[in-house]
């Protein structure tokens, strides 16, 4: 495949890619630290993955195979549009199969299938600063990161326990990277947090509006914050997937009629289809 000659390869101009590439390399060298970058205006609105798409555009090469998911699904508008964007501007192959992809751009999920060394996971990040809701001053949050002073976040989790009896954070659950930087995992469900720990794949995070890039290198410790007497627990709906029968994947609740009928199905559509195919083959 070739790319649309009206665009530079992968849309961004070369000097922008160069600047983003340098930011990515420093982000990898300082795991969990947010590196500022000169985020460009992209042909999609903020909140639709402008950060992720700039990271993907800077990393992507002609031999890559790209997968894009939105909340685990390959066939939502955001995922379909971003795949089409890179097919046109970079001429790369795209796939819906997690196992075949070399780069996976994601909004709000980590695929169920264990990722491998040959893969890069690119997260779309709305709010990169884990302390944003606790401390609105950016100058102050930078100082707190410099001093690794994360007492504010522990107090917040403690208040959760005091009010609700448990930590009532079910997504964007804060993590410590390599026991140094507090990091927002982006709004993935807390269920996905354990997958980040010692993942063989490289994890890159891009926040377009907030102009930050950060990273977790492969095989890096990622620990969800908790307390000895209130250990971290990944939460999932206590049901089986209606389509594939899985009892250990993250589920979406789907309303099926206007009488309150509902089913639970896997959020990761590729994984679900793979399991359905295996089940059919076995029958």
């Amino acid at each position: 495949m070739t790319h649309d000659p009206g665009y530079n390869f992968a849309y961004l101009d070369e000097s922008t890619k160069r600047m983003i590439r340098r930011a990515i390399l420093k982000a990898v060298a300082i795991p969990g630290h947010q590196v500022p970058f000169g985020s460009r205006e992209m042909p999609l609105p903020y909140g639709w993955g402008t950060g992720g798409i700039q990271v993907t555009a800077s990393v992507l090469g002609p031999r890559d195979v790209l997968k894009v998911i939105d909340q685990g699904s390959d066939d939502t508008t955001n995922a379909v549009s971003i795949r089409a964007f890179f097919r046109r501007t970079a001429g790369v192959a795209t796939t819906e199969r997690t196992a075949e992809a070399t780069i996976i751009q994601t909004r709000h999920r980590i695929p169920e299938r264990r990722l491998t060394e040959g893969q890069i996971l690119v997260y779309q990040v709305p709010i990169p600063e884990p302390l944003a809701r606790l401390e609105p001053r950016i100058a102050e949050t930078r100082r707190l990161h410099a001093m690794a002073d994360y007492g504010l976040m522990h107090v917040k989790l403690y208040e959760d326990i005091a009010k609700h009896g448990h930590i009532a954070t079910s997504y964007s659950y804060p993590v410590m990277v390599n026991e140094r930087y507090l990091m927002s995992p982006s709004p993935i469900p807390a269920f996905d947090n354990p997958k980040m720990h010692m993942m063989p794949a490289l994890q890159l995070f891009g926040a377009g509006r907030e102009k930050r890039i950060y990273a977790v290198p492969p095989y890096t410790a990622v620990r969800s914050l908790d307390f000895e007497d209130h250990p971290f627990r990944p939460i999932r709906a206590p049901h089986r997937c209606e389509l594939c029968g899985s009892g250990d994947t993250y589920l979406d609740e789907v309303l099926v009629d206007d009488k309150g009928g509902r089913i639970f199905v896997c959020s990761d559509t590729d994984h679900c289809q793979e399991r359905q195919a295996m089940r059919e083959a076995a029958e």
């Binding site: 890619k17 160069r18 590439r21 390399l25 990898v28 990393v59 090469g61 290198p217 492969p218």
Partner: peptide
């Protein structure tokens, strides 16, 4: 090829820095 060679060189450096 300034565009694709730069990309390939960057990816090699990224891989080296990540591992």
């Amino acid at each position: 090829d300034p565009v694709l060679d730069s990309q390939a060189a960057f990816r090699a450096v990224l891989e080296a820095m990540s591992r």
